[in-house]
Design a protein around this nucleic acid. Structure first.
Lengths: 228, 228
DNA sequence: AAACATCCTGACCGTTCGGTCAACAAATCA
DNA sequence: TGATTTGTTGACCGAACGGTCAGGATGTTT
């Protein structure tokens, strides 16, 4: 079992020709633009975001943004791909031999961390799905579906071995996704209701503990040692 | 305890003068426009939605939409108010004397029904929050906050009486909100992963049962009868 | 029929949209 | 240094934006 949270792979595709120049300027500007675009797209959705707004958020003229990114569409796709790469790195290999309690807790914890470390990316993803996933349909019914099904099979085997209740594993995965995603996507609601102006590390830890306890207990997860 | 799901209150504010005419035309057209607008706003967010697109979805010329609704902004606000009215009708009065199991199940069930009966409205609400709740901030930190706090206090009293585990009631409410909201907001993801092209009534019933069982068990909810 | 309010909509307004381009500045290579 | 790539940006394009308005269609009340 691993839950590598990659530093930022970013799979860059350089323009046609690239001299031996180190390209430091390009790297810095692209980073700035991507960060700004993630914020703007997350807040207003694909259609609602304007290149002008992204440029202003990045502190650059509009032309410069298009010089680096080519088009609004291309910029958006690139952000989605970056977010999917982060997502894919979550809990990428687990086995029936692992302890269900450990795996589920690691799952909840790492998903919570993803939402916390990349709230704008999480919201960008949410906005994309909310709008009917026009760019991600293939990913959802392909890669991600396989990912879910593989893990679902393991959960089922745990249930057969009596390590947890025989709950539908897909609904369980959705429960964990939704409960954790909520704190990024509905941040405005959470803050408004709790009266805080941001969630501290301690808050996040408390929520993580809460979710882990309720969900594990709710699924009747028993520790591996108790198997025999 | 009641969980009235109002037929559609809609709090209409008629234009200045209104002759004795029945206004059937107005009523029909407004209904069409509101339904179309809810779909378009939900899919593209406030900025991303265009009056032209709403008009086309309603099968009317753009001028006609503005004739009835005045402005894009006014139309959006009206939709939000309608959705908040539905939301407010949820579980509007519960008491410490109620059975926690009954209340929590009714809560999960009615929230799930809200997401199912008004998926576009749910997504509209989600898009609003996702974008930082520019129109709903006051509602969130006012009415809704009070709503949550009142229910939280009851949950706490139940915990004191040993009817459920002493979990943080606010996190619990968020858990229920997120888990149920998920099936409207992330419908595209749910369908893509399960391979279905829609969720049947039976699916929804199964999910509701799953959520009820896991969450109640996870919070250690005991039935009222066992109190003594 | 006359009078009146409601309903309908094409034409139009100023602004912003995504994107192109030419001209120029800066840096790197030869 | 001269040549070449890389970075920068204002001006501009056609299309779409939210919104206005005049003027005709429709319908209801006298």
């Amino acid at each position: 079992m691993s839950m590598s949270e990659l530093p930022e792979a970013d799979s860059v595709s350089w323009p046609r020709t690239m001299a031996a120049s180190n390209g430091a300027t390009r790297e810095r500007n692209e980073r700035e633009i991507l960060a700004a675009a993630e914020r703007v797209f997350a807040r207003h959705g694909y259609r609602g975001a304007s290149v002008q707004a992204i440029a202003e958020a990045a502190g650059l003229p509009k032309s410069n943004v298009l010089y680096y990114m080519g088009s609004k569409r291309g910029l958006y796709v690139r952000l989605l791909e970056r977010m999917m790469a982060r997502w894919n790195a979550l809990l990428d290999d687990i086995s029936v031999e692992d302890d269900p309690a450990d795996v589920l807790e690691a799952f909840i914890r790492s998903k919570m961390q993803l939402s916390r470390r990349h709230p704008e990316g999480s919201r960008l993803f949410a906005a994309e799905i909310l709008g009917g996933a026009p760019f991600l349909q293939d990913y959802l019914s392909g890669e991600l579906r396989d990912w879910v099904q593989a893990r679902a099979r393991i959960f089922e085997q745990w249930a057969e071995r009596g390590l947890m209740d025989p709950v539908d594993p897909v609904w369980l995965i959705f429960l964990i996704w939704s409960a954790t995603q909520h704190y990024a996507d509905f941040e405005a609601q959470v803050l408004g209701i709790t009266g805080k102006d941001e969630l501290s590390d301690a808050d996040v830890e408390e929520i993580t503990t809460f979710l882990t306890r309720v969900i594990l207990k709710g699924c009747g997860v028993r520790s591996r040692e108790a198997e025999a």
